[in-house]
Design a protein around this nucleic acid. Sequence first.
DNA 1: CTAAACCGACCGTGCACTCGGTCGGTATGC
DNA 2: GCATACCGACCGAGTGCACGGTCGGTTTAG
Lengths: 213, 213
Amino acid sequence: MSYPPGYRIERERNRTEKAGDIARAKAIQAAIELFSTSGYNKSSIAEVALRTGLSQSGLLHHFPNKTALLTAVLEQREKEDSEFLFGEGAAPLGWAAFDSLLALVARNSTRPEWIGLFVRISAEATEANHPANQWMLDHYRSTRQWLTQAIEDGKRTGEILPDVPVDAIVRNTIAVLDGLQQQWVAEPDSMSMVAELRVYLDQLRSAWGNPQQ
Amino acid sequence: MSYPPGYRIERERNRTEKAGDIARAKAIQAAIELFSTSGYNKSSIAEVALRTGLSQSGLLHHFPNKTALLTAVLEQREKEDSEFLFGEGAAPLGWAAFDSLLALVARNSTRPEWIGLFVRISAEATEANHPANQWMLDHYRSTRQWLTQAIEDGKRTGEILPDVPVDAIVRNTIAVLDGLQQQWVAEPDSMSMVAELRVYLDQLRSAWGNPQQ
DNA sequence: CTAAACCGACCGTGCACTCGGTCGGTATGC
DNA sequence: GCATACCGACCGAGTGCACGGTCGGTTTAG
Protein backbone atom coordinates (compact mmCIF):
# COMPACT_ATOMS: atom_id res chain seq x y z
CA MET A 1 0.00 0.00 0.00
CA SER A 2 1.32 3.44 -0.75
CA TYR A 3 -0.81 6.28 0.35
CA PRO A 4 -0.89 6.54 4.15
CA PRO A 5 1.16 9.57 5.10
CA GLY A 6 3.71 9.51 7.86
CA TYR A 7 5.41 6.32 6.81
CA ARG A 8 9.14 5.70 6.77
CA ILE A 9 9.89 8.78 8.76
CA GLU A 10 13.55 7.99 9.25
CA ARG A 11 14.51 8.61 5.63
CA GLU A 12 14.57 12.01 3.98
CA ARG A 13 11.60 12.37 1.67
CA ASN A 14 12.83 12.75 -1.87
CA ARG A 15 11.42 14.62 -4.80
CA THR A 16 9.21 11.87 -6.18
CA GLU A 17 7.59 11.25 -2.89
CA LYS A 18 6.84 14.94 -2.78
CA ALA A 19 5.21 14.64 -6.19
CA GLY A 20 2.99 12.00 -4.70
CA ASP A 21 2.01 14.26 -1.85
CA ILE A 22 1.13 16.99 -4.28
CA ALA A 23 -1.00 14.63 -6.32
CA ARG A 24 -2.77 13.43 -3.21
CA ALA A 25 -3.46 16.95 -2.05
CA LYS A 26 -4.78 17.92 -5.48
CA ALA A 27 -6.97 14.85 -5.51
CA ILE A 28 -8.41 15.64 -2.12
CA GLN A 29 -9.15 19.16 -3.22
CA ALA A 30 -10.83 17.92 -6.39
CA ALA A 31 -12.81 15.41 -4.39
CA ILE A 32 -13.98 18.09 -1.99
CA GLU A 33 -15.24 20.18 -4.85
CA LEU A 34 -17.00 17.27 -6.48
CA PHE A 35 -18.49 15.76 -3.35
CA SER A 36 -19.70 19.17 -2.31
CA THR A 37 -21.85 19.57 -5.38
CA SER A 38 -22.79 15.99 -6.19
CA GLY A 39 -22.46 14.18 -2.91
CA TYR A 40 -20.35 11.12 -2.42
CA ASN A 41 -22.49 8.41 -3.93
CA LYS A 42 -23.15 10.22 -7.15
CA SER A 43 -19.58 11.37 -7.67
CA SER A 44 -17.26 9.12 -9.65
CA ILE A 45 -13.61 8.55 -9.00
CA ALA A 46 -13.09 8.92 -12.73
CA GLU A 47 -14.26 12.50 -12.51
CA VAL A 48 -12.06 13.17 -9.51
CA ALA A 49 -9.12 11.74 -11.44
CA LEU A 50 -9.93 13.96 -14.41
CA ARG A 51 -9.95 17.08 -12.28
CA THR A 52 -6.78 16.01 -10.55
CA GLY A 53 -5.03 15.55 -13.85
CA LEU A 54 -4.56 11.83 -13.41
CA SER A 55 -5.97 8.74 -15.00
CA GLN A 56 -8.40 6.78 -12.91
CA SER A 57 -5.76 4.15 -12.27
CA GLY A 58 -3.29 6.84 -11.31
CA LEU A 59 -5.69 8.17 -8.73
CA LEU A 60 -6.38 4.68 -7.42
CA HIS A 61 -2.67 4.29 -6.94
CA HIS A 62 -2.82 6.91 -4.23
CA PHE A 63 -6.18 5.96 -2.76
CA PRO A 64 -6.88 2.25 -2.90
CA ASN A 65 -10.59 2.76 -3.28
CA LYS A 66 -13.33 5.32 -3.20
CA THR A 67 -13.95 5.19 0.51
CA ALA A 68 -10.28 5.84 1.22
CA LEU A 69 -10.63 9.03 -0.75
CA LEU A 70 -13.66 9.96 1.28
CA THR A 71 -11.82 9.27 4.49
CA ALA A 72 -8.98 11.54 3.42
CA VAL A 73 -11.46 14.29 2.59
CA LEU A 74 -13.16 13.99 5.96
CA GLU A 75 -9.87 14.00 7.81
CA GLN A 76 -8.86 17.13 5.96
CA ARG A 77 -12.06 18.85 6.91
CA GLU A 78 -11.88 17.76 10.50
CA LYS A 79 -8.31 18.97 10.73
CA GLU A 80 -8.90 22.41 9.27
CA ASP A 81 -12.05 22.97 11.27
CA SER A 82 -10.58 22.03 14.59
CA GLU A 83 -7.44 24.04 13.89
CA PHE A 84 -9.63 27.04 13.28
CA LEU A 85 -11.82 26.46 16.29
CA PHE A 86 -9.30 25.33 18.84
CA GLY A 87 -5.94 26.25 17.36
CA GLU A 88 -3.09 25.26 19.59
CA GLY A 89 -4.83 26.05 22.83
CA ALA A 90 -7.86 24.72 24.62
CA ALA A 91 -11.42 24.77 23.35
CA PRO A 92 -13.31 27.97 24.14
CA LEU A 93 -15.95 27.59 26.83
CA GLY A 94 -18.96 29.51 28.04
CA TRP A 95 -20.52 31.94 25.60
CA ALA A 96 -17.15 32.15 23.90
CA ALA A 97 -17.81 28.71 22.45
CA PHE A 98 -20.90 30.01 20.72
CA ASP A 99 -19.01 33.04 19.48
CA SER A 100 -16.45 30.82 17.87
CA LEU A 101 -19.21 28.90 16.15
CA LEU A 102 -20.28 32.20 14.66
CA ALA A 103 -16.71 32.87 13.57
CA LEU A 104 -16.54 29.45 11.98
CA VAL A 105 -19.72 30.09 10.05
CA ALA A 106 -18.43 33.48 8.93
CA ARG A 107 -15.28 31.92 7.65
CA ASN A 108 -17.03 29.02 5.94
CA SER A 109 -19.32 31.45 4.16
CA THR A 110 -16.31 32.24 2.02
CA ARG A 111 -15.71 28.57 1.25
CA PRO A 112 -18.93 27.24 -0.23
CA GLU A 113 -17.44 23.84 -1.01
CA TRP A 114 -17.01 23.13 2.66
CA ILE A 115 -20.59 23.84 3.44
CA GLY A 116 -21.83 21.83 0.50
CA LEU A 117 -19.54 18.98 1.43
CA PHE A 118 -20.85 18.84 4.95
CA VAL A 119 -24.50 19.19 4.03
CA ARG A 120 -24.42 16.40 1.49
CA ILE A 121 -22.15 13.98 3.22
CA SER A 122 -23.88 14.19 6.54
CA ALA A 123 -27.27 13.67 4.92
CA GLU A 124 -26.07 10.66 2.94
CA ALA A 125 -24.23 9.34 5.95
CA THR A 126 -27.36 8.97 8.05
CA GLU A 127 -27.74 5.67 6.23
CA ALA A 128 -26.30 3.02 8.49
CA ASN A 129 -23.90 1.40 6.05
CA HIS A 130 -22.64 4.56 4.41
CA PRO A 131 -18.85 4.76 4.63
CA ALA A 132 -19.08 8.06 6.46
CA ASN A 133 -21.71 6.92 8.91
CA GLN A 134 -19.35 6.43 11.81
CA TRP A 135 -17.58 9.67 11.06
CA MET A 136 -20.87 11.50 11.17
CA LEU A 137 -21.91 9.99 14.46
CA ASP A 138 -18.53 10.81 15.96
CA HIS A 139 -18.68 14.32 14.60
CA TYR A 140 -22.05 14.98 16.17
CA ARG A 141 -21.08 13.37 19.41
CA SER A 142 -17.90 15.35 19.85
CA THR A 143 -19.63 18.59 18.93
CA ARG A 144 -22.31 17.89 21.49
CA GLN A 145 -19.70 17.09 24.08
CA TRP A 146 -17.84 20.29 23.48
CA LEU A 147 -20.96 22.47 23.63
CA THR A 148 -22.23 20.66 26.69
CA GLN A 149 -18.95 21.24 28.41
CA ALA A 150 -19.02 24.88 27.31
CA ILE A 151 -22.42 25.42 28.88
CA GLU A 152 -21.50 23.60 32.06
CA ASP A 153 -18.45 25.79 32.36
CA GLY A 154 -20.55 28.89 31.76
CA LYS A 155 -22.78 27.81 34.61
CA ARG A 156 -19.74 27.35 36.79
CA THR A 157 -18.39 30.82 36.09
CA GLY A 158 -21.87 32.26 36.41
CA GLU A 159 -22.24 33.70 32.92
CA ILE A 160 -24.96 31.18 32.13
CA LEU A 161 -28.01 30.65 34.33
CA PRO A 162 -28.03 27.34 36.19
CA ASP A 163 -31.52 26.23 35.14
CA VAL A 164 -30.67 26.10 31.45
CA PRO A 165 -31.88 22.99 29.58
CA VAL A 166 -28.44 21.95 28.41
CA ASP A 167 -29.18 19.06 26.09
CA ALA A 168 -31.94 20.82 24.22
CA ILE A 169 -29.85 23.91 23.69
CA VAL A 170 -26.91 21.91 22.46
CA ARG A 171 -29.03 20.02 19.98
CA ASN A 172 -30.95 23.09 18.89
CA THR A 173 -27.77 25.03 18.29
CA ILE A 174 -26.37 22.27 16.15
CA ALA A 175 -29.69 22.09 14.37
CA VAL A 176 -29.66 25.79 13.57
CA LEU A 177 -26.14 25.46 12.26
CA ASP A 178 -26.98 22.52 10.02
CA GLY A 179 -30.31 23.89 8.91
CA LEU A 180 -28.93 27.27 7.96
CA GLN A 181 -26.19 25.62 6.00
CA GLN A 182 -28.73 23.58 4.16
CA GLN A 183 -30.77 26.63 3.23
CA TRP A 184 -27.63 28.42 2.22
CA VAL A 185 -26.50 25.63 -0.06
CA ALA A 186 -29.87 25.70 -1.76
CA GLU A 187 -29.87 29.47 -2.30
CA PRO A 188 -26.57 31.05 -1.31
CA ASP A 189 -27.44 34.57 -2.42
CA SER A 190 -30.71 34.84 -0.59
CA MET A 191 -29.38 34.96 2.94
CA SER A 192 -26.50 35.50 5.32
CA MET A 193 -25.89 32.64 7.66
CA VAL A 194 -23.97 34.92 9.97
CA ALA A 195 -26.83 37.35 10.39
CA GLU A 196 -29.38 34.65 11.10
CA LEU A 197 -27.13 32.80 13.47
CA ARG A 198 -26.40 36.01 15.35
CA VAL A 199 -30.10 36.48 15.97
CA TYR A 200 -30.32 32.96 17.33
CA LEU A 201 -27.32 33.45 19.61
CA ASP A 202 -28.63 36.78 20.90
CA GLN A 203 -31.84 35.02 21.72
CA LEU A 204 -29.93 32.35 23.58
CA ARG A 205 -27.97 34.90 25.54
CA SER A 206 -30.99 36.93 26.49
CA ALA A 207 -32.88 33.84 27.57
CA TRP A 208 -30.15 32.09 29.57
CA GLY A 209 -27.40 34.62 30.06
CA ASN A 210 -26.79 36.03 33.50
CA PRO A 211 -28.08 39.65 33.39
CA GLN A 212 -25.73 40.58 36.25
CA GLN A 213 -22.61 40.06 34.20
CA MET B 1 -49.73 7.20 -22.28
CA SER B 2 -51.80 5.47 -19.70
CA TYR B 3 -51.44 6.63 -16.19
CA PRO B 4 -52.86 10.13 -15.73
CA PRO B 5 -56.06 9.77 -13.74
CA GLY B 6 -59.23 11.65 -14.51
CA TYR B 7 -59.55 10.63 -18.12
CA ARG B 8 -62.74 9.44 -19.75
CA ILE B 9 -64.75 10.42 -16.71
CA GLU B 10 -68.04 9.48 -18.22
CA ARG B 11 -67.25 5.78 -18.05
CA GLU B 12 -67.30 3.68 -14.95
CA ARG B 13 -63.80 2.59 -13.95
CA ASN B 14 -63.68 -1.13 -14.21
CA ARG B 15 -62.02 -3.69 -12.05
CA THR B 16 -58.69 -3.74 -13.84
CA GLU B 17 -58.41 0.01 -13.78
CA LYS B 18 -58.97 0.01 -10.06
CA ALA B 19 -56.25 -2.59 -9.73
CA GLY B 20 -54.02 -0.07 -11.39
CA ASP B 21 -54.83 2.54 -8.77
CA ILE B 22 -54.03 0.08 -6.04
CA ALA B 23 -50.74 -0.84 -7.68
CA ARG B 24 -49.81 2.81 -8.02
CA ALA B 25 -50.57 3.50 -4.38
CA LYS B 26 -48.57 0.49 -3.29
CA ALA B 27 -45.69 1.59 -5.46
CA ILE B 28 -45.71 5.07 -3.99
CA GLN B 29 -45.69 3.62 -0.50
CA ALA B 30 -42.81 1.32 -1.36
CA ALA B 31 -40.93 4.19 -2.92
CA ILE B 32 -41.40 6.32 0.17
CA GLU B 33 -39.94 3.60 2.33
CA LEU B 34 -37.00 3.04 0.04
CA PHE B 35 -36.22 6.67 -0.66
CA SER B 36 -36.42 7.41 3.04
CA THR B 37 -33.62 5.02 3.86
CA SER B 38 -31.49 5.14 0.72
CA GLY B 39 -32.31 8.46 -0.84
CA TYR B 40 -33.53 8.88 -4.37
CA ASN B 41 -30.32 8.54 -6.34
CA LYS B 42 -29.22 5.37 -4.67
CA SER B 43 -32.61 3.67 -4.82
CA SER B 44 -33.40 1.54 -7.83
CA ILE B 45 -36.75 1.21 -9.49
CA ALA B 46 -36.15 -2.53 -9.59
CA GLU B 47 -36.20 -2.57 -5.80
CA VAL B 48 -39.33 -0.46 -5.68
CA ALA B 49 -40.94 -2.87 -8.12
CA LEU B 50 -39.92 -5.83 -6.00
CA ARG B 51 -41.47 -4.34 -2.89
CA THR B 52 -44.57 -3.41 -4.81
CA GLY B 53 -44.98 -6.94 -6.05
CA LEU B 54 -44.51 -6.00 -9.68
CA SER B 55 -41.86 -6.59 -12.26
CA GLN B 56 -39.74 -3.63 -13.16
CA SER B 57 -41.57 -3.32 -16.45
CA GLY B 58 -44.86 -3.52 -14.67
CA LEU B 59 -43.88 -0.64 -12.44
CA LEU B 60 -42.69 1.40 -15.38
CA HIS B 61 -46.05 0.89 -16.96
CA HIS B 62 -47.56 3.03 -14.23
CA PHE B 63 -44.74 5.55 -13.90
CA PRO B 64 -43.02 6.30 -17.18
CA ASN B 65 -39.69 6.86 -15.51
CA LYS B 66 -37.97 7.21 -12.19
CA THR B 67 -38.54 10.91 -11.79
CA ALA B 68 -42.28 10.45 -12.33
CA LEU B 69 -42.24 8.13 -9.35
CA LEU B 70 -40.40 10.72 -7.31
CA THR B 71 -42.89 13.37 -8.32
CA ALA B 72 -45.74 11.18 -7.19
CA VAL B 73 -44.03 10.60 -3.86
CA LEU B 74 -43.48 14.29 -3.30
CA GLU B 75 -47.05 15.13 -4.21
CA GLN B 76 -48.25 12.58 -1.73
CA ARG B 77 -46.11 14.06 1.01
CA GLU B 78 -47.11 17.60 0.21
CA LYS B 79 -50.75 16.64 0.25
CA GLU B 80 -50.71 14.83 3.57
CA ASP B 81 -48.64 17.49 5.27
CA SER B 82 -50.74 20.40 4.19
CA GLU B 83 -53.91 18.54 5.04
CA PHE B 84 -52.59 18.05 8.53
CA LEU B 85 -51.39 21.62 8.89
CA PHE B 86 -54.15 23.53 7.24
CA GLY B 87 -56.96 21.05 6.94
CA GLU B 88 -60.00 22.56 5.28
CA GLY B 89 -59.64 25.95 6.83
CA ALA B 90 -57.11 28.74 6.70
CA ALA B 91 -53.48 28.50 7.78
CA PRO B 92 -52.88 29.22 11.47
CA LEU B 93 -51.24 32.57 12.16
CA GLY B 94 -49.39 34.20 15.04
CA TRP B 95 -47.90 31.89 17.63
CA ALA B 96 -50.49 29.33 16.63
CA ALA B 97 -48.50 28.74 13.47
CA PHE B 98 -45.50 27.72 15.54
CA ASP B 99 -47.66 25.51 17.68
CA SER B 100 -48.87 23.65 14.67
CA LEU B 101 -45.29 23.12 13.60
CA LEU B 102 -44.78 21.44 16.92
CA ALA B 103 -47.87 19.32 16.34
CA LEU B 104 -46.57 18.34 12.92
CA VAL B 105 -43.25 17.28 14.38
CA ALA B 106 -45.00 15.29 17.08
CA ARG B 107 -47.03 13.48 14.50
CA ASN B 108 -44.10 12.84 12.19
CA SER B 109 -42.14 11.35 15.06
CA THR B 110 -44.42 8.38 14.68
CA ARG B 111 -43.71 8.11 10.95
CA PRO B 112 -39.95 7.82 10.60
CA GLU B 113 -40.14 7.22 6.85
CA TRP B 114 -41.48 10.69 6.33
CA ILE B 115 -38.67 12.32 8.19
CA GLY B 116 -36.06 10.22 6.44
CA LEU B 117 -37.65 10.95 3.11
CA PHE B 118 -37.53 14.65 3.68
CA VAL B 119 -34.02 14.75 5.11
CA ARG B 120 -32.53 12.78 2.26
CA ILE B 121 -34.45 14.20 -0.63
CA SER B 122 -33.98 17.79 0.38
CA ALA B 123 -30.25 17.28 0.83
CA GLU B 124 -29.90 15.61 -2.54
CA ALA B 125 -32.12 18.17 -4.13
CA THR B 126 -29.86 21.08 -3.34
CA GLU B 127 -28.02 20.04 -6.47
CA ALA B 128 -29.30 22.23 -9.25
CA ASN B 129 -30.26 19.54 -11.73
CA HIS B 130 -31.77 17.10 -9.28
CA PRO B 131 -35.33 16.22 -10.29
CA ALA B 132 -36.62 17.45 -6.94
CA ASN B 133 -34.68 20.70 -6.98
CA GLN B 134 -37.60 22.87 -7.96
CA TRP B 135 -39.87 21.12 -5.52
CA MET B 136 -37.42 21.81 -2.74
CA LEU B 137 -37.10 25.48 -3.58
CA ASP B 138 -40.86 25.82 -3.75
CA HIS B 139 -41.27 23.98 -0.50
CA TYR B 140 -38.88 26.27 1.33
CA ARG B 141 -40.32 29.35 -0.25
CA SER B 142 -43.88 28.56 0.66
CA THR B 143 -42.94 27.61 4.20
CA ARG B 144 -41.11 30.90 4.57
CA GLN B 145 -44.07 32.77 3.20
CA TRP B 146 -46.45 31.15 5.60
CA LEU B 147 -44.27 31.79 8.65
CA THR B 148 -43.57 35.35 7.58
CA GLN B 149 -47.26 35.95 7.25
CA ALA B 150 -47.84 34.31 10.61
CA ILE B 151 -45.41 36.66 12.32
CA GLU B 152 -46.74 39.72 10.57
CA ASP B 153 -50.19 38.78 11.71
CA GLY B 154 -48.94 38.27 15.25
CA LYS B 155 -47.53 41.77 15.16
CA ARG B 156 -50.84 43.11 13.95
CA THR B 157 -52.80 41.47 16.75
CA GLY B 158 -50.14 42.47 19.24
CA GLU B 159 -49.11 39.04 20.43
CA ILE B 160 -45.69 39.46 18.83
CA LEU B 161 -43.47 42.46 19.48
CA PRO B 162 -43.11 44.80 16.50
CA ASP B 163 -39.31 44.94 16.44
CA VAL B 164 -38.91 41.24 15.76
CA PRO B 165 -36.37 40.32 13.04
CA VAL B 166 -38.85 38.45 10.91
CA ASP B 167 -36.64 36.98 8.23
CA ALA B 168 -34.03 35.65 10.61
CA ILE B 169 -36.62 34.05 12.84
CA VAL B 170 -38.36 32.42 9.92
CA ARG B 171 -35.13 30.98 8.60
CA ASN B 172 -33.90 29.94 12.02
CA THR B 173 -37.13 28.18 12.80
CA ILE B 174 -36.98 26.22 9.58
CA ALA B 175 -33.34 25.50 10.32
CA VAL B 176 -34.13 24.10 13.75
CA LEU B 177 -36.83 21.95 12.23
CA ASP B 178 -34.56 20.56 9.52
CA GLY B 179 -31.57 20.20 11.77
CA LEU B 180 -33.45 18.33 14.46
CA GLN B 181 -34.88 16.01 11.88
CA GLN B 182 -31.42 15.30 10.62
CA GLN B 183 -30.13 14.46 14.07
CA TRP B 184 -33.15 12.35 14.69
CA VAL B 185 -32.68 10.35 11.51
CA ALA B 186 -29.12 9.66 12.52
CA GLU B 187 -29.99 8.50 16.04
CA PRO B 188 -33.73 8.26 16.58
CA ASP B 189 -33.55 6.86 20.07
CA SER B 190 -31.24 9.45 21.51
CA MET B 191 -33.59 12.39 21.48
CA SER B 192 -37.11 13.76 21.29
CA MET B 193 -37.60 16.29 18.55
CA VAL B 194 -40.69 17.55 20.29
CA ALA B 195 -38.91 18.34 23.54
CA GLU B 196 -36.06 20.16 21.84
CA LEU B 197 -38.35 22.11 19.57
CA ARG B 198 -40.46 23.14 22.51
CA VAL B 199 -37.43 24.67 24.18
CA TYR B 200 -36.69 26.61 21.03
CA LEU B 201 -40.25 27.85 20.74
CA ASP B 202 -40.40 28.88 24.39
CA GLN B 203 -37.24 30.83 23.80
CA LEU B 204 -38.82 32.52 20.83
CA ARG B 205 -41.92 33.42 22.77
CA SER B 206 -40.04 34.79 25.72
CA ALA B 207 -37.81 36.85 23.48
CA TRP B 208 -40.43 38.27 21.12
CA GLY B 209 -43.77 37.59 22.70
CA ASN B 210 -45.77 40.43 24.12
CA PRO B 211 -45.59 40.06 27.92
CA GLN B 212 -48.87 41.99 28.30
CA GLN B 213 -50.90 39.29 26.67
C1' DC C 1 18.55 -1.88 -8.89
C1' DT C 2 14.55 -0.37 -6.38
C1' DA C 3 10.53 1.79 -5.47
C1' DA C 4 7.18 5.00 -6.35
C1' DA C 5 4.27 7.28 -9.94
C1' DC C 6 1.40 6.49 -13.34
C1' DC C 7 -1.26 4.39 -17.26
C1' DG C 8 -4.32 1.48 -20.74
C1' DA C 9 -7.03 -2.31 -21.20
C1' DC C 10 -10.12 -4.92 -19.21
C1' DC C 11 -13.99 -6.84 -16.29
C1' DG C 12 -18.25 -7.43 -13.60
C1' DT C 13 -22.12 -5.24 -11.92
C1' DG C 14 -25.95 -2.37 -11.28
C1' DC C 15 -28.89 0.50 -13.36
C1' DA C 16 -32.63 3.09 -16.11
C1' DC C 17 -35.09 2.33 -19.76
C1' DT C 18 -36.92 -0.14 -24.36
C1' DC C 19 -39.30 -3.54 -26.96
C1' DG C 20 -42.28 -6.87 -28.15
C1' DG C 21 -45.36 -9.33 -26.42
C1' DT C 22 -49.61 -11.94 -23.42
C1' DC C 23 -53.94 -11.74 -21.06
C1' DG C 24 -58.32 -10.43 -19.51
C1' DG C 25 -61.91 -7.26 -19.55
C1' DT C 26 -65.06 -3.92 -22.10
C1' DA C 27 -67.36 -1.34 -25.78
C1' DT C 28 -69.42 -1.79 -30.40
C1' DG C 29 -71.37 -3.17 -34.93
C1' DC C 30 -74.08 -6.51 -36.93
C1' DG D 1 -75.30 -12.99 -28.89
C1' DC D 2 -71.23 -13.03 -31.03
C1' DA D 3 -67.16 -11.58 -33.46
C1' DT D 4 -64.14 -7.76 -33.68
C1' DA D 5 -61.55 -3.98 -32.08
C1' DC D 6 -59.54 -1.87 -28.47
C1' DC D 7 -57.47 -0.88 -23.94
C1' DG D 8 -55.08 -1.23 -19.61
C1' DA D 9 -52.26 -4.28 -16.60
C1' DC D 10 -48.34 -6.64 -16.64
C1' DC D 11 -44.05 -9.34 -17.92
C1' DG D 12 -39.24 -11.33 -19.85
C1' DA D 13 -35.51 -10.41 -22.33
C1' DG D 14 -32.48 -7.35 -23.72
C1' DT D 15 -29.55 -2.90 -24.38
C1' DG D 16 -26.39 0.60 -23.46
C1' DC D 17 -23.98 2.97 -20.19
C1' DA D 18 -21.64 4.41 -16.00
C1' DC D 19 -19.03 2.99 -12.54
C1' DG D 20 -15.68 0.79 -9.11
C1' DG D 21 -12.02 -1.87 -9.18
C1' DT D 22 -8.07 -5.20 -11.09
C1' DC D 23 -3.93 -6.32 -13.56
C1' DG D 24 0.11 -6.07 -15.93
C1' DG D 25 2.80 -3.10 -17.46
C1' DT D 26 6.13 1.38 -18.45
C1' DT D 27 8.37 5.50 -16.97
C1' DT D 28 11.03 8.21 -13.75
C1' DA D 29 14.01 9.40 -10.05
C1' DG D 30 17.44 8.31 -6.77
